[in-house]
Amino acid sequence: MTKAERAAHLDRRLDELYPETPVPLDHFDPYSLLIAVLLSAQCTDARVNLITPALFARANNPRDMMEVPVEEIREIIRPCGLSPRKSKAISELSRILIESHGGEVPADFAALEALPGVGHKTASVVMAQAFGVPAFPVDTHIHRLAQRWKLTNGKNVDQTEKDLKKLFPRNRWNALHLQIIFYGREHCTARGCDGTVCMLCRELFPRRKAPVVVTKS
């Protein structure tokens, strides 16, 4: 298969495997999603979903959150890791949302990325999942699978994102982002597959014998 043929095959098969793409992080509005995505850095979605109910019971909007002492936020989110940095970012971005955005999460990449603790991937997730704007956030699963499927050279996550956006239709980016993550977690895991084991790797590369060495994001 050519790269374009592999992309078309994956597009079809992933849509068959995962026709529904629920957002893995529990949330109820753009603000709660933003906070959940921020907390998910170097933390599993499952753990974030265990932590956010207590945090949002304390404050579930930026105006209330900015009044919560950073130390209290840090104690609540401690199990997510990186709590000193994340708690400070949550407090500061909540204040900025009130002071500069009318208390609303902006549906704008540049404005999101200007918020403390919000990088391009976090902004992309919020734009895609909260506002429906086409984006292709690349996490470790997507970066790994894109290399195993020879859709990118794996140089870095920025290049992987650019390569995937060129290969797949814009109207499929948001769903594919989640479908690839679901598949990577369930079948093509970091240790459970080396590019020769899972069903999609075998479908794409039936003659592949040697393991695929991938670079981390």
Results as ranks from 00 to 15, higher is better:
17 L>C: 05
22 P>R: 01
30 P>Y: 07
30 P>G: 10
31 Y>M: 12
32 S>T: 15
33 L>W: 00
33 L>P: 05
34 L>T: 13
34 L>C: 05
36 A>P: 00
38 L>K: 01
39 L>S: 05
40 S>M: 11
41 A>N: 09
41 A>F: 00
42 Q>F: 07
43 C>M: 11
43 C>V: 06
48 V>R: 04
52 T>G: 02
52 T>F: 06
53 P>F: 04
53 P>L: 10
53 P>G: 12
55 L>S: 04
57 A>E: 15
59 A>L: 04
60 N>F: 03
61 N>R: 15
64 D>P: 00
70 V>S: 01
73 I>E: 06
75 E>F: 01
76 I>Y: 00
78 R>N: 10
78 R>Q: 14
90 I>K: 01
92 E>V: 09
99 E>I: 12
100 S>N: 14
100 S>I: 00
102 G>I: 10
103 G>T: 08
106 P>A: 06
108 D>N: 15
109 F>Q: 13
109 F>T: 07
113 E>I: 10
114 A>L: 07
117 G>D: 08
119 G>Y: 12
134 P>Y: 00
135 A>S: 13
137 P>F: 11
138 V>Y: 01
138 V>A: 05
139 D>H: 04
140 T>K: 10
141 H>F: 11
146 A>N: 01
147 Q>L: 10
149 W>R: 11
156 N>M: 08
167 L>Y: 00
170 R>C: 09
171 N>M: 09
171 N>P: 02
174 N>D: 11
180 I>R: 00
184 G>S: 12
189 T>R: 15
189 T>C: 07
191 R>V: 11
192 G>R: 13
194 D>S: 14
195 G>L: 05
199 M>F: 14
201 C>F: 01
202 R>C: 02
208 R>K: 13
209 K>R: 15
215 T>L: 11
216 K>C: 14
216 K>H: 14
217 S>V: 09
